[in-house]
Design a protein around this nucleic acid. Structure first.
Lengths: 170, 170
DNA sequence: ACAATGAGTTCAATGACTGAACTCGATGCT
DNA sequence: AGCATCGAGTTCAGTCATTGAACTCATTGT
C-alpha cells in the first residue's frame, strides 16, 4: 500500500491503520490468533508472496504487535507470537469477522467461550455468562458442514476445535 | 492495493477486508459516521487524491455500504450515506479506534452514550447502563485539550460535540 | 555425504496510488 | 444575459507497492 501512513490524520484510527491497515496484515494476525507461529505456516496458509510476508512480519515485530523468538526445537529458526498489545487487537478482528460473516456469508467460524461452552455473539459477548472473554478463553471451530476447501496443514489442523493463541500442531 | 481480493481465503475476515481493507476506506467510513456526506467534504478532510476517493466511494456504493442519493438542495449533486450494513461496521471501527487510542495515543476522541451521558469503554459498552449502543445513540467530542490541528471545515465542525450519523453543518 | 526443508532475499513485470491538470454542469454575482 | 466560481468528478504521467519465480544459505534427515 503506497504511503502506508496517514500523517495528516491526527486520529486514533489512522494510527491503528498505520500498523494493521496494509494488505495481508490482518490475515496474518488472524492466523497468529489461530496459533500459527512459523514463517512457512503463514506462507502455506495465506498464499502470500514470501517477500511481502517477510516485510509484514518485520513491521509487526517493530510495531510491538508480534514477538520474534528463537524456536527452542530448531536452531536458527524463529517463532512469531502475539504480544500483549497484539492480543488486544482481538476485539477489532472479531468485529470485522462478525460483519463479514453476517454480510458476506461464507464459512465463518464459530467462537466459543471455553469456560461456558457457549457461543460468542457478534459483540464478542458470551451468550451464557455475558462476559466478553479475551482470546485466551476462546475456542474456535468450523461451523457444521462448512469446512474450508484448503488443504494446507494449517487449514487441516483448524478442522478440529482449537484454543486461540495455542500453538497449532501441524 | 494490487489484487484487492483474497480469493483463496475462504474466511469471513477475508470477505470483510475485500470491502473495507483498502487504503483510505476505513477513514472514509469513519468520516461517514461523523456525518460527512459530500465528496468535497471527504476530500478536504482526508487529503486523499480525488481519483482514489471517487474509486473508493464507488466501490462502497456497489458493495452496499454507502448509498448515493441526490442532494435535495443542489441539483446534480449527490450525498453519500451509510446503509444499514454500513452502520453495522461501527463496532469494528470503534474497536480499532480504541486500540489506536490505547497503544498509539494521540488525540483520540471521546464517545458518549447519548441517553446516559456516560462514556463508552473500549468494548463500546456504556459505563453507566452497560448497553452497547449503536451509532445513532452516540455523541462524539474531542478530549480535553486535544483539538485537531487541522483547519478544514469538517475538522472545525467536529470541535463541538456531534451526534454520530447526523449531517455535519460545514 | 547428499537431499530436503525452513526461512528468507533478489529481481523484473505488473498494477495501484499520487498530484496536477482538465472537464462539465449548476449556482452566484453584476 | 454573461462571467466567474464551486462541487464533483475524470484523465494522465510518474512513482511506488505487490507479485511470482528464482536464488541463497543454514539446519536437519537418511
Amino acid at each position: 500500500m503506497l504511503g502506508k501512513d496517514y500523517a495528516e490524520q491526527d486520529c486514533a484510527l489512522a494510527r491503528a491503520l498505520e500498523v494493521v491497515g496494509e494488505r495481508w496484515t490482518l490475515l496474518i494476525l488472524r492466523d497468529a490468533f489461530y496459533g500459527v507461529r512459523r514463517f512457512n505456516e503463514f506462507h502455506a496458509h495465506l498464499d502470500i508472496p514470501k517477500a511481502v510476508l517477510s516485510d509484514r512480519l518485520g513491521a509487526l515485530v517493530s510495531d510491538g504487535v508480534l514477538n520474534r523468538v528463537p524456536d527452542p526445537e530448531h536452531g536458527g529458526r524463529y517463532l512469531y507470537e502475539l504480544t500483549q498489545s497484539g492480543r488486544e487487537l482481538w476485539p477489532a478482528l472479531h468485529a470485522l469477522m462478525s460483519w463479514g460473516g453476517r454480510h458476506r456469508a461464507t464459512n465463518s467460524r464459530l467462537f466459543v467461550h471455553a469456560t461456558c461452552d457457549a457461543a460468542l455473539d457478534d459483540d464478542g459477548r458470551c451468550s451464557r455468562c455475558g462476559h466478553t472473554p479475551g482470546p485466551d478463553e476462546i475456542v474456535t471451530m468450523p461451523r457444521e458442514g462448512r469446512r474450508s476447501r484448503r488443504t494446507d496443514p494449517v487449514a487441516i489442523a483448524l478442522r478440529a476445535p482449537h484454543h486461540l493463541l495455542e500453538p497449532l500442531d501441524t
